[in-house]
Design a protein around this nucleic acid. Structure first.
Lengths: 159, 159
DNA sequence: GGTGAAAGCACCGAGTT
DNA sequence: AACTCGGTGCTTTCACC
């Protein structure tokens, strides 16, 4: 949980790997003027420290037929039902992110669906969960992602 | 934009790479009972088709000192200001995702910050953008991510 | 904590079925 | 389309600094 100490070299390594996980360590090494072995050791340490938790492909969901995104706010009868409902929510595969929130909603989640009728099905599934009194849906017309790289650079600039 | 044709083998390859981008093609090949060359050709085709758009590291933002997440809904004076405001929003580095939405808000975004006071700074920046009349903030107490793997499996089951 | 070289693999293209 | 195979280049380790 604590803030981990990373130096400038680590940040540069992360920046390059965030942009492309398969960047050869030899390339990184050349660019930073260090040896490939050093890059390897540093990456391994960041993995062991739990800073790097994994790697994943980025996919074009539109091309896969999933072009619909909505956010759904969920109201519960009682706050004590939150964990129960969250588990049910997480069991629905097209819900890609779920948050327990303060404020208006108890739970707030992101839905990725094929189209409006598919989204309707998913929202009905949410409505059917015990304890859910009501939902409120926001439909995304356009998504823009400021990817992780951006965040890393910011962190880097500030440390 | 159209739905791309992927067979079962492609889906298995994607599943394994989504879980870990650096999974050796030889491992994938062994597990699927095909040759590593075939895996290579298929991945390349999916890259060329734009289905695989890249790869990225997954980081533990808490360990990097970024443990605060909020969603901010933005109200505008006029809908016609949307693109202008969106550009300003996207220029703020700690805003990791932004959506143009229907319904209550005009724009809806996700903020990743160090703590509450850092979040306050960011929200003030949003409020200061020309055309923004009001914002509404939801603070995340807990985030659970149903990662891409889950989605891929679902797609696979349905096709 | 870093280096550099060497061994072990993986990648990737060409040619074949 | 998929396979095999060989050259090339990347990763990973280790003795040394």
């Amino acid at each position: 949980m604590a803030k981990f100490k990373l130096d400038e070299t680590d940040h540069h390594i992360l920046d390059m790997l965030i942009e492309n996980t398969r960047t050869p360590f030899t390339d990184i090494a050349k660019r930073l003027g260090i040896s490939a072995g050093t890059v390897h050791v540093r990456v391994k340490k960041m993995e062991e420290a739990g800073i790097i938790t994994g790697s994943s492909l980025m996919l074009d969901y539109k091309k896969l037929g999933y072009s619909f995104i909505a956010y759904v706010g969920i109201f519960l009868q009682k706050t004590s039902q939150t964990q129960f409902v969250l588990e049910r929510i997480n069991a629905i595969p097209f819900i890609t992110v779920a948050h327990v929130t303060t404020g208006k909603f108890n739970i707030f989640c992101k839905v990725r669906a094929r189209d409006t009728s598919h989204a309707k099905e998913i929202i009905y599934m949410i409505d059917d969960i015990d304890g859910v009194t009501r939902t409120e849906t926001m439909i995304s017309l356009e998504e823009s992602i400021n990817d992780k790289k951006r965040l890393m650079h910011s962190i880097f600039q500030e440390i």
